Simulated assay, not measured.
Amino acid sequence: MPRPSLREHVIAAAVEQFHRRGYHASGVKDITDAANLPKGSFYNYFSSKEEMALEALRRYGLGRQLERLRDPGTPPVDRLRAHFVFFGDDLNHDGTNLGCMFGNFAAESISTGPALRDAVGNAWSHWIAALTVALTEMKELGELPADRDVDLLARGLARAWQGTVLHAKVLQDMSPIDDFFAGVFEPLLGLPAR
């Protein structure tokens, strides 16, 4: 198996540092220390901390498995549930203190540059579009009432999830995840309580 490049090593360290500490609290030295590289080597791969953060956000986004929301081989309601279960499992695995890197960056976005704000905004738009695909299929199958606004519903689910993650982070436990399914996911989609 080929050895990962030093650039990939720096990216992995940056994703971990930005996710754990946020944008402002993660310096280039923190990232290079985590990668066990001299600080100057960072600039062999990236021109700035912002450029690195954009790549870290992109890599984090790839791990969100949004393509599963478009899988035609699985019923749309099952895809939606599995999507949020995956997010909850990921949160539980990483520890509630990390939260969602997009949500963490969004909380800092007022004091970051426009490139980072745009990257987070685009990630949210991409996520909401993927949720809308599954919700539209549910509507076409008659699993949602014909008058339901799937775009509004997708935005509501995304926002409710981010609030859930934030609450889990504050409480340092996973109980808000159960609340999300029982109090938001199932009622919004008109599903019977599990």
Rank of each mutant, 00 (worst) to 15 (best):
A182H: 13
A146M: 02
L144I: 05
G142I: 03
A158K: 00
F181R: 06
A146K: 09
R148D: 03
V170C: 06
D179N: 12
D147I: 00
L166E: 09
L171C: 09
P145N: 00
L166W: 07
G183H: 02
V170T: 11
F185E: 10
E140V: 04
T136I: 00
M174Q: 14
G163K: 08
E140M: 13
F185I: 06
M174K: 09
P176A: 04
T164R: 04
L152F: 02
E143D: 14
V165M: 04
A158D: 12
A160Y: 08
F180D: 06
M138R: 10
V184L: 13
P176G: 00
E140F: 07
A168I: 05
L157E: 05
L153C: 04
I177V: 15
L171G: 05
D173W: 03
L152A: 13
Q162T: 11
V170W: 14
R148C: 07
M138G: 05
R159Q: 14
P176M: 02
A168L: 04
V184A: 12
K139D: 05
A146L: 03
F185Y: 12
F181Y: 12
G183S: 08
L166T: 13
I177F: 01
F180Q: 11
P176K: 05
D179H: 09
V150Q: 06
M138N: 09
L153D: 02
E137G: 00
A158P: 08
F180T: 07
G156V: 07
P145D: 03
D149E: 02
W161F: 05
D149K: 05
M138S: 03
W161A: 08
D149L: 03
L141T: 02
P176I: 01
R155M: 09
A146S: 13
L157I: 07
K169Q: 13
M174L: 13
F180W: 04
E140S: 12
H167W: 10
F185G: 12
P176L: 01
A168M: 00
V165N: 04
M174H: 08
H167L: 15
D179M: 03
V150G: 01
L141P: 12
R155C: 09
V170N: 06
E140A: 14
L157F: 03
A158Y: 06
R159N: 14
R155I: 01
F185C: 13
A182V: 05
A154G: 07
L166N: 09
Q172T: 10
F180G: 10
L141G: 11
A182S: 14
L153T: 05
Q162N: 10
